[in-house]
């Protein structure tokens, strides 16, 4: 067995195409090769897979002129992926509830940080206090998700951890102000959720922040 097989792996890749769709609030995968429905908990994938399907025929051949011909397989196949539409955390809600929640969310103040720092600045403390007051009063019926973000300098794990430590700093402050810790969850998006894309210090400053999201 020849080098090309080693080169691209020893797997016989045919194709499955998966369409993800939503039905009665649950997500399903429809497999293009063999029909099969799988409930997905978070419905995050629109996937093309290579696995044995209808044909066992290898698709790539390598023939060494000095020896008997050898058969090989192909690594990947060109097919447009299926886009997943259902990506939100939200479950079914009434319109008015959604409006109230969206309004409250918009009025909560983002907390900004210095470069490579996760200590809450003095000038940001009043914002956190206002957020805590709102969390305890008007928004008391909702859970709070703190989203930590960073500027564009680095896409590594450290940057994600920095975003998380920023969210944790805000959480600690909110808890100190009397918000129940059980209501608060956190996520870090690193640099992948910028609000500003210009190459200026002011812009990077806007991206080093913690945002508030309300969840039912």
């Amino acid at each position: 067995m020849g080098k090309f097989n080693q080169l691209i792996g020893n797997h016989k890749f045919n194709m499955y195409i998966f369409a993800i769709f939503r039905y009665n609030g649950a997500y399903f995968i429809k497999k293009g090769c063999v029909m099969k429905n799988i409930i997905l908990s978070s419905a995050a994938v629109a996937v093309l897979f290579f696995a044995g399907c209808s044909s066992n025929k290898p698709v790539v051949d390598e023939t060494n002129k000095d020896s008997a011909s050898t058969q090989f397989t192909q690594p990947v196949e060109e097919v447009a992926p299926v886009q997943d539409q259902g990506m939100s955390d939200s479950t079914v809600k009434s319109d008015s509830n959604e409006m109230t929640m969206a309004n409250l969310e918009n009025s909560m103040l983002s907390v900004y940080f210095d470069f490579d720092k996760y200590v809450i600045r003095q000038d940001m403390k009043s914002s956190v206090t206002k957020d805590a007051d709102m969390a305890k009063a008007d928004a008391s019926a909702y859970s709070i998700k703190l989203e930590g973000n960073c500027d564009e300098w680095g896409s590594d794990e450290y940057n994600f951890a920095l975003g998380l430590k920023r969210a944790q700093a805000v959480k600690t402050e909110l808890v100190n102000e009397g918000v129940d810790a059980k209501r608060i969850s956190m996520v870090s998006y690193g640099k992948s959720a910028p609000v500003c894309n210009e190459k200026t210090k002011e812009c990077w400053q806007k991206n080093r922040r913690v945002d508030f999201k309300l969840l039912p």
């Binding site: 419905a43 995050a44 629109a46 093309l48 060109e78 992926p81 886009q83 997943d84 794990e157 998006y189």
Partner: peptide
């Protein structure tokens, strides 16, 4: 070839 798309999937 895209393998996973939709939402934020990293690392």
């Amino acid at each position: 070839q895209k393998i996973v798309s939709g939402g934020l999937n990293v690392f």
